[in-house]
Design a protein around this nucleic acid. Structure first.
Length: 161
DNA sequence: ACCATTTGACCAGA
DNA sequence: TCTGGTCAAATGGT
């Protein structure tokens, strides 16, 4: 699953930050823990690696990586890998044991609010010059074909060494 | 004190 | 061996 996010200056960064852990009416939001960052050949900006915060509790394999574009520093590619075994995206059997207090009633609907907290992570890539005030414009990128930089982006939970 | 981030090291695949 | 992905100790924030 690949998403493209774009920044604009409207929303305060602090707002984005607060959005991070706040559950919405759509259900609890997934939170990510950063576990690595790498310089990528041919990319001006490093790529950051995240995984589900509650991996330990739920054994959730969900991961994502955030890559800022070379030509457009306001645009980020966020590649999601794996599927959550916890909470709303859950399709895995272990979800029942995983979400004791969280009824999995909400499905991932198109009108699900933009995961702003993603940008909080993304903006940490040397946002110098951009300023603190920005807004986020996430949108799916169905017509994205050049996956040469990426391995499979389907949720089939590819190789996990 | 607990938990997330940082950062270089380490590892595996091409 | 090079590159991308992950680990884990140290660090910082709450």
């Amino acid at each position: 699953m690949l998403k493209i996010y774009k920044l604009n200056n409207k929303t305060l960064f602090s707002n984005v930050e607060k959005e991070r852990d706040r559950p919405t009416k759509y259900g609890p939001v997934h939170t990510w823990r950063k576990y690595g960052q790498k310089e990528i050949l041919g990319s001006k900006f490093p790529r950051a690696y995240y995984r589900c915060t509650h991996q330990k509790l739920y054994n959730c394999p969900a991961k994502k990586q955030v890559q800022r574009l070379n030509d457009d520093p306001f645009t980020f590619r966020v590649t999601y890998r794996g599927s959550h075994t916890c909470q709303i995206y859950s399709t895995a059997p272990t979800a029942s044991a995983a979400a004791p207090t969280t009824p999995v009633t909400t499905s991932f609907s198109p009108d699900y609010g933009p995961p702003l907290f993603d940008m909080a992570d993304a903006m940490m890539f040397g946002s110098s010059g951009i300023g603190v005030n920005m807004d986020i414009y996430p949108f799916n990128d169905p017509s994205h074909h050049d996956d040469h930089c990426y391995r499979r982006s389907e949720d089939g939970d590819d190789e996990d060494k």
